[in-house]
């Protein structure tokens, strides 16, 4: 049962790698990497139960946290073009561009 689940998760990861390789836009790739991290969490959990060591579940939870923080960091970087303090014109960037306001 857990072996079958592991193989299914692995197939998901293979499909995600195709999207990561071919993905036309930036957001396809960010989303693919985030989902790949989630698949890693699931695979670690499934493998832990498969080999009779469910203590791996704690590590899987930590992976989920790192995955979340990493995705936030990447997206924040693409929003502000920097990682440290927020820029002075943060409010100007956060405001929607004029075209969107008209709609």
């Amino acid at each position: 049962m857990f072996a079958f689940i592991s193989l299914l998760i692995f197939i998901c990861m293979a499909v995600l790698m195709v999207r990561l390789f071919a993905g036309p836009t930036l957001y396809d790739r960010v989303l693919a990497l985030n989902t790949f991290g989630s698949c890693t969490v699931l695979l670690i959990g499934a493998v832990g139960f498969l080999f009779g060591r469910p203590d791996f579940l704690d590590i899987a939870l930590l992976y989920a946290l790192i995955n979340f923080v990493g995705t936030i960091a990447v997206l924040k970087f693409f929003r502000y073009r920097r990682l440290g303090d927020a820029p002075e014109d943060a409010e100007a960037i956060m405001a929607p561009p004029p075209e969107e306001q008209k709609q």
Binding site: L20, G23, L33, F36
Partner: peptide
Amino acid sequence: FAVVMLAGV
């Protein structure tokens, strides 16, 4: 950018 994402994978 794709290379960075692939390195993460």
